[in-house]
Design a protein around this nucleic acid. Structure first.
Lengths: 332, 332
DNA sequence: CTGAAAGCGCTTACAG
DNA sequence: CTGAAAGCGCTTACAG
């Protein structure tokens, strides 16, 4: 492996000078710089980031916690974060927590030992109780995609989930729907609240019974809950699913009950669904600005890391948008 | 941050002794070891892996290339690799290549500069042309989930895809199907060949026209290809989809044409489908041993890394299995 | 603008 | 079994 020393000898300078041109911290006489750059190119020198890391404390590596990578939403988040990091010359150390606090704890120790520059935590599921652990870590921690109550003092870049639910509700109200159902995941209370607010503000409050929380928010659990809801409320003309998987379950339930979508039932989803896997009509859905969220979270974390400061703890709330599809129509 | 030196002073020994107990490389007198361990616990010392990495050359970090993390198959692979690494105290540096050779090249440089212990590459899509780059890298590279021709000299842990296709074909033949269609992704020629072999061996060779390759192997592209295939061959009683997304597309096509599954059409898939997202009947599918593949790839790579040797280049071929579901039935 | 020195926190032979 | 020394490849003040 070729080192800075090798380059220095080749260029007839000391290695400090090579360091100066590589880091650009100090201006070097143009002629010298040219010689150094030539030597670097000839030798194919590439700086050893481990050594640099030991000297500077920065590894140009960032950790990311996600509950899983198998959910389409988090898969997208991972790729967006990776892209945002790459633009800044950083790499991604991925940790899936699987909703397991102990596992997260082990990962945290691994990251600390490796001198990561920052840690991003996407999704709050099951981790809230372990947040205190993060308090005395030596690198900035930024939360994102956080729907639960915002923990004090932690910087967070997330989405206004309440607004997302509200958008879904307003959309259905604008189409004239008066009786709507909500198919919700237990973690999605905020979106549900926003949806109900839209109906309430319009003088059409939804009964508590119209909200069905699938204890098991998978396709299977969602299907059972959707069938039950639709049977209990045969007069409902619309349904809001707080999650992509639940929306797919709702579509299937409608199909099983002979309700066509959107004519027999309008369906609004939250999160974009994995287009490649979805059959049936393109869903009307609330889309989250994942790219923007990733960029801001990375910027906040790395900005703080480079200044050696704590990130600004004021929560950043991004706005979701409603993208109309073919799964909603005016009420008949 | 507490260092080995701090621990040494506390325990009244030199830091080399601390290093000896931490690494376990040299046996230390029990009384001394106890003092050192006590000091470590009191101070909450955790070894700095960056410093260790610089001294030993091993970062206890492994890179993984996958085309994307949004495809359920690769999402699973990522989590399995992560688990296999964690068992050995290693962490995962994730790089999604997005079928972009240039991007892979940049990631490779980033990994090399960070002294990863090894690199795993899952999926061959679009990377085969860039393989030569890997030849002169300083750490072991192991390929996995590799369907294309096995490149010379590279160690690979993969699945017998031909056998997977053959299993699918034999299953349909055992159910009495004589006229089957194949809905294939362009990259899946090997599975397709195995499927055709099963029919050929039974004296029922499939016409070339029965194989439809979806140039666009997404749901959309698969749906179009499936509709066309089913219309061109109204007498076909079974269909083999070489990929989960295509299987979902086939189900939808069957539904649109009024063919019930499995009575009107048997469908066999390859890869396990994301159960959470799938509507309709549970698919009969060829399942790949992802966990075993991840374990072996990690073991091979880290074994070679620790010995400073090249991994054994003999290809390891794991066997897929056919898991019966509700999407296949005896021909009527 | 360039060079000599010290240091980042570990490990690894090598003497005692 | 324990300790002193050198080294991993960089960066960072600090003199010249």
């Amino acid at each position: 492996m070729v080192t800075m020393q090798d380059v220095a000898e080749r260029a007839g300078v000391t290695k400090q000078t090579v360091s100066n041109v590589v880091t650009g911290r100090v201006t070097v006489r143009p002629a010298t710089e040219a010689r150094v750059r030539a030597a670097i190119a000839e030798l194919g020198y590439v700086p050893n980031l481990v050594a640099r890391s030991l000297a500077t404390g920065s590894s140009r590596t960032v950790g990311l916690f996600v509950p899983t990578v198998s959910a389409p939403f988090y898969a997208d988040v991972v790729e967006e974060v990776e892209d945002a990091l790459e633009e800044r010359g950083h790499r991604l150390l991925l940790c899936t927590t699987r909703l397991d606090g102990e596992r997260a704890r082990r990962h945290l120790a691994g990251l600390a030992a490796r001198s990561v520059d920052a840690l991003l935590i996407a999704g709050d599921q099951g981790l809230t109780g372990h947040l205190p652990l993060l308090a005395d870590v030596r690198f900035p921690v930024v939360l994102c995609a956080w729907e639960a109550a915002l923990p004090d003092g932690f910087p967070v870049v997330t989405v206004d989930y309440e607004h997302g639910g509200h958008l879904a509700g307003r959309h259905l109200r604008a189409l004239g729907h008066e009786r709507a159902l909500v198919l919700a995941s237990p973690a999605h209370t905020v979106r549900t609240a926003g949806f109900r607010r839209a109906f309430r503000e319009d003088g059409m409050p939804l009964p508590d019974d119209a909200v069905r929380t699938a204890a098991d928010p998978t396709f299977r659990g969602g299907l059972a809950a959707a069938l039950e809801a639709l049977r209990d409320h045969p007069d409902a003309t619309a349904l809001f699913a707080t999650h992509d998987v639940l929306a797919v379950a709702a579509l299937e339930a409608a199909r099983m009950l002979g309700r066509s979508v959107p004519d027999g039932l309008s369906v609004v989803a939250h999160d974009d669904t994995p287009a490649g896997l979805l059959s049936g009509p393109a869903l009307t859905t609330v889309v989250l600005p994942k790219r923007e969220m990733a960029r801001q979270a990375v910027g906040l974390a790395l900005g703080a890391a480079s200044r050696g400061a704590r990130p600004d703890p004021r929560p950043r709330l991004l706005l979701p948008a409603l993208v109309p599809g073919e799964s909603t129509a005016p009420v008949r």
